[in-house]
Every structure is written in structure tokens, then in C-alpha cells.
Design a protein around this nucleic acid. Sequence first.
DNA 1: CTGAAAGCGCTAACAT
DNA 2: ATGTTAGCGCTTTCAG
Lengths: 337, 337
Amino acid sequence: MNVTLSQIADETGFSINTVSRVLRGDERISMQTSTQIKEVAARLGYVPNYAASSMRSHNTHILGVISADSSNPFFAEVILGVEDTAKQYGYHILLMNTEEKAENECAAIKTLQGRQVDGIISIPLYDEDTTRKLYMELPVPYIFAGRKVRGLENHSILHRDKESTDQIVTWLLENGHNRILYITGPESISNSLDRLCGYVNAYKRAGKEPDKSLIIKTDGHIDDGYGTVNRMLKLQADFTAIVCFNDLVAMGVLKSLYENNLSVPETMEVAGCDNLSISQYMQPRLTTVEVPKYRLGKEAVLELIRHIRNSELPYETRNLDTRLIFRESTRNRPVHT
Amino acid sequence: MNVTLSQIADETGFSINTVSRVLRGDERISMQTSTQIKEVAARLGYVPNYAASSMRSHNTHILGVISADSSNPFFAEVILGVEDTAKQYGYHILLMNTEEKAENECAAIKTLQGRQVDGIISIPLYDEDTTRKLYMELPVPYIFAGRKVRGLENHSILHRDKESTDQIVTWLLENGHNRILYITGPESISNSLDRLCGYVNAYKRAGKEPDKSLIIKTDGHIDDGYGTVNRMLKLQADFTAIVCFNDLVAMGVLKSLYENNLSVPETMEVAGCDNLSISQYMQPRLTTVEVPKYRLGKEAVLELIRHIRNSELPYETRNLDTRLIFRESTRNRPVHT
DNA sequence: CTGAAAGCGCTAACAT
DNA sequence: ATGTTAGCGCTTTCAG
């Protein structure tokens, strides 16, 4: 069995309470007592029992994390930001993966609630009645990292999905492209909706109408990029540039173009989104949107802790800044004045 | 506040105890009582308080997971296997990242112990006195997934690192290569040691001596592959094939070779290890070693649960099978007879 | 099949 | 600066 406070109390002659105070770092304790107790605790190899502590104090110092898609390195980096920051503030991480399935997300929310987590950081689906209801009834604070839930937008920290896709498409339109293929992500998540919206907006602002046959709906995985381009080329579809939902899709796209002897960027320009670390090693290096992944995780935790400490604090949608990174998969780059 | 057993007891007229039994699925309860209690529990939205339960029952149904390097998608897939399997058996996952630092691993072990986890799955460093001591004194079962700790080898589930690197190097030697560059991983982990050993063994069995100047020690990241090949080419080092510690390194290697106008596999053959999902999208598609990542996570959990249920069970090193996958980054492939 | 009582290890609240 | 008391929500043990 593990060493308990009462054993240390016995050993030192002080009361359990005093021992507890010392080990929690309470100030009003004499130096002598404090050092003695700490010494004995260390000698016996005391490790605090969080379960007992949390039962009494009503906080577990555990943050629940609901992640979406483990096959995308994007989320690994977000979670690293979450974990580092949480640790810094004395919180630990209970992790659940949903693989973008509503039922998994429901189960995760309930489980985390049962575990009495102090707060939840989630990468949620956009418009599911079941999960929305669970979030709304959650007795603890929650933050959505990088995504929105319909009706609960103020709980989100986002990264200007619409604007960045709009920018890259606008850039391509300005560079003479008229027929830009857009490969979407899953319709179930807000990023897909927002980014697609950016694509459409860019066309409209340029006074043009996007061709719906150039908008291809996919799940946003690497093989979707590969398969989509293969198919479109076989159909002899007419397009001169490809904007991808994310970098993974772009990687599949580049592969297909290479195999079909279409040179990038000379005959086809390609852009992704996310700026994964592998993207600068693709051939050619990928032009993409830098999304602050680690920082997103970090800010989500900071915001969450703020709400844990002050339950009155109103929720407010926030946006992190992104920026376009021009590499070799596009021809020109903007002149910075 | 959350709904408690006592509220359900009040509502139904039964004792707390009976309610507890029903909700835990105890058999010896009348159908009628059972259904009634379950109904009320559902109506009130009861969620069990794991902290309270675990305090009394001395098990938390939490598994601690100590992961190593979040920048490598390899681990994401292992952890997915862990999480899925754990969930299936009613366990949840407390995740900690070490980023391959001994002090982080120490802190993680202690923290998980404090959280009273029922067992630990770790991706550890190989030879650290501090962590080894902590593992040895752990009051709960633990399994090392895909790696060894010196002196605690029997706690590991491995994947024949030595043999698979030996195989690929042997294959290259048989195909006329004499000077094969080997780019290692970090010396602090057992995989690097074992795989390097496989490289040396292959040479010896072929009656040759490996040239030490062709063994380059790195941290096993993508930029190490890129930087190493750039450097070796600048030094005009003499080699005709490259075997990489892992697929990430190989990706960097391919990039450097491309930029230096060395065609793969015609003038330089390249092999990786891990078979990440992105590896078949590299240019050219990467020849590599399939390591059963998801399965590794799964088996680690199964083995761990076996030890949780039976603390007498002896530990025994296990090995999962791997196999070579020949793709486009090597010229020939073995004839299967 | 069901209930009463005790207690897991800790902390909050009050006392001195 | 330290001690006493009570109790968090649940499960275990013993009783019936």
C-alpha cells in the first residue's frame, strides 16, 4: 500500500492536518515543522492520493481532452501544447479520441464528466444535437480548440479558417487562375465549412462565380487528395490550380500530379493548410497556411483555467492569427512593401 | 453538483447500497428493483463518481501512458491502439509526454503513481538509473511498448528491430552494395541500439566489415535525415545506399537526394523503418519495415490487464512480427518462391 | 435479495 | 502555528 498522511503524522508526532498543510505548501507553518515533515515524507516515499484529495476539495486537477483524428499530426501538436501548459499549471490530461464519430464524442463527454474533470478541451463535430446538448449541460467549463460547435460559438478559439483560404484563393485568382480545384474536408466539422466559404468568397469578391464541379467533397485524408486528383485527371476536368483542405490532402495531391507527369508549380499550382512539419519536405515544398498548433493548445488551456478559476467569466470567441507561407508549390510570391 | 447514489436512493426508497449494486451490475437483485433504479438513474442523469469509487475499491480503472515523442506519428498510432483497447476493457488513459527526456519520464512515473493508476504503459529511455529505479519500485504492473529498459527486458513487447534492419541491409549487400550509409536514432533508446546492431550483424554475416564513417549518429528526426545527407554529399563520401533509423529520417533523406539531383532508386537506394501511412506517398514511395503500431498498443494493454488481474503472473519479453515492404525507393524485390 | 455501518485518504471549517 | 471534527461518494463487510 502507499504511504498516507497518517503514517507521516504517526512518525513525526504532528496531526494529519498539519502534515497535509505542509505538503500542500500552506504558509502558516513553522519552518522547523515544515522541514521535518517534508524530510519524513521524502524518506517514506510519500505520493499524494489525488483521488482522496479531489473528493474532498471538489477538484481533480485533471483536464479532459477530446481529440478528433489521431491520423493527422496536426492534433498531436495541439495536444502537446495542451499537455505542456496543463502540466505547468498542475493539471493532468485524460485523453479520448473520437475519430470524428458523434457517438464517440458523446461517450467521451460523459466519461470525462464521470471522472470529475475540472474542465474539458474538445475538438468537436460541428452540428450534432446529441453532443451539443451534452456540452450545454456540462457542469464544468469547456473550450473548443480550433473548431466551432453550432450555437456554442463563443466557446471557441479559432484560427481564421475562412480568411486564410480566401487569401490563398484570391492570390491564385490574381495570378491568372480561373479554374481552381478545391478539395474539401468532412462536412461534419466547422473548418471544412469555413474554408470552403473562404474559397467561394474569394471568387465572389473577384466578381466571378465558382464552378461547383470544381468543389470536391472528401474526408480530408491523404488518400482523398490522391484519389480525387487521379479521378479528376481521368475525367479530363479543366483546372490549373488546386487548393486543399489541409496539408495531408495536399501530400496526396502532389503524389498524383507527379505520377501523372504534371509539373508543380509550372503546370499546376498547389496549396495546403496547417503547415505540418513534414510539409517543407514534400516535393516540391508545400505552400500552405501556418496555423499555430502548439499555441492553440496552449491558449485553450489558459482560457480554460481562467474559466475554472472564475466561473462567472463570460465566454467569447477568439481568433489566433495565421499567415500564408509561400514555398515551391506555387509560382510567385507577394511583394512585401 | 452531480447526482449521487443517495439521491437515487431517496427517490426510489431503496438503500444506497442496493442502488450501488444495481448500477454496478451486481447479479443478486430482483429484475423489478433493477429496472426501476436504472430508470431513475437515467432520468436524473446520474454519472458515477470514479474518484469516490476508486478510493474505496482501490482501483481507478485508469492506465497511465508515458509517450516519447509527439512529433512522430508512429506514437500516435500506438496510442490509438492503447486507447481503443483500454476503452474496450473499461479503462481510461492518463497521457504524459516525455519528449525523450529522463527528467520528464521520472516526473511522469511519479505523477501517475500519485494518480493511483492501475498500471502503466511506457515508451521509455533505455539506460537511465533514475527511471529504472522508479520502474522497479512501482507498486503497479507496467509494460514497455516497443522499447526495452536495461535490466527490465522482460517487461517489453518488442518488434524485432535487430532482425528487420539486418534483413534490409543483407538484402542490399546481396544486391551489390558494399558501402551503405546508416543514419541512427538517438542513443538513449533501445531501438537505435538494436537497429544499429542489425546493420553491423548483416555486414559481419556477409563476411564484411562495416565502415564506421558510414554510421552517422543523429536524433532520428526528419531534419536529421536531410542534414546528414547534405553533409555527406558535400564531403563527397562514398556510398550507394542509405538505410534510415525510421521513415521520418528517410523523408528528409529523399528530399536532400532530390535536391542534389541523385535519382532514387537508380543511383541511390533508400530504406526506412516504421511504415508510417505517409511513407507510401513519398517520392518515390518508400521501402520500409512494417511495424504493427496499432497492434503494439493493443497487445501492451492486453498484457497489462493480464498482470493487473493476476499480480503473480511472471513477465516475459514478447516480440511482434514485422515484415519488409518493398516499394519504389529500392530497385529489386525478393522473388517469393 | 436488501440494509446498516464503517471507512477509504484527504481537506474544509472551526477551534485554540 | 497546530489540533479536532466532520464528511466528500462510494464500496466492503457483515447482518438479516
